[in-house]
Design a protein around this nucleic acid. Sequence first.
DNA 1: TATTTTAACTAATGTTATTAGTTTTGTAAA
DNA 2: TTTACAAAACTAATAACATTAGTTAAAATA
Lengths: 201, 201
Amino acid sequence: MKEKITKQAILSVSRDIVNQEGYDALTLARVAKALKIKTPSLYNHISGLKDLRKELALDALKQLNYEVTQSAVGRSGDGALKAIGFAFIHFMRENPGLYAATLIAPDLQDPDIDQESSAIVAIIIKVLEPYHFGNVRAIHFVRGLRALAHGFSTLEYQGGFQIEVPLDDSISVAFDTFIKGLMAMNEAPGKENQKTENHSA
Amino acid sequence: MKEKITKQAILSVSRDIVNQEGYDALTLARVAKALKIKTPSLYNHISGLKDLRKELALDALKQLNYEVTQSAVGRSGDGALKAIGFAFIHFMRENPGLYAATLIAPDLQDPDIDQESSAIVAIIIKVLEPYHFGNVRAIHFVRGLRALAHGFSTLEYQGGFQIEVPLDDSISVAFDTFIKGLMAMNEAPGKENQKTENHSA
DNA sequence: TATTTTAACTAATGTTATTAGTTTTGTAAA
DNA sequence: TTTACAAAACTAATAACATTAGTTAAAATA
């Protein structure tokens, strides 16, 4: 049963390739071989390697958004925040190649990519709502949480944690710590509580 | 006055290339052109592109370590921690190509690279000493601070922050938040305060 | 059935990294 | 000063890659 060759099929084998053989293994030659066609035939469906990388990154971001969103449903407050953090790590562990795709191929100027990126921000903003932060302050916290999740993911991806202390404990403690500080901040709020409409932090 | 061609000279032009033209612009052909020699001649000094990337990453990590260390001297406690965080961001802003080199070329298995990575950990551990955390707990916090700094750097590098709220404010708030939570944690310590000797978190 | 579009193909070009073998050049010894 | 050697440049060649142009076969449509 031959798979019909379509953009989705190309993305599908690309996902497998990057996850199993590493991001660098994603070449048009490799993709064509997996699909049993010649390299130039790919140009009937995509407009080149750069395009393929972008599409793959977009796909990865969509999946990441979905999993992050799912991790937060049914939870609230600090439980939801921690779940979001772990959803990042989980995604990276299960899909190292796709995670690399979101790291390397960014082109954040691209409107499609930009939209997916800010969708993640919107999720966190929503979870933060009950805390009643001012908008500016909320953006600071969103950025902090995002940086924390992203930082842990990237460092583990690179192999930056070798010690025998379990990483999951560290992540848990780090989020607890940040959230605890966040509460303390709320009791003694700063002066920068102006309104802001733009939520694409 | 012709520059004598040496490993250092190769690394020097490589630094300029990645910072000015992006990490992808680092090819042996490009380096050779900058040095006005032919590509194969480079093999008299380095053993290939992979080697060059590794050497460049090592160089970048050394510089990063130096700047992080310098940022902490004369400061203590939360002031020092925040300064370290900003040193990361500053390095990334001034040397985007070198920063990318540390992100992309890792090979964390390599002993040279590993040593430089754990040097950064040692610095933070030292700054945390006055807080008298147990070793396990200290490692958690080191990881958290490292992830925070790394996360902010990487996200800004990718262009992940577009809004008009200044990023430096967010970084400041995030570190304050984390440090505040850290103090609160210290007042109510957890149960996992065993001793550990390995400091290469 | 005839026509148009889709999607494969072959052929060719230019850019890479890399290896092998050769020549030049500078330095140190005779 | 001449000779010997090693360092560091070179030329030539190969293989993997992306990309473009032009061609052909098959499928969909009119």
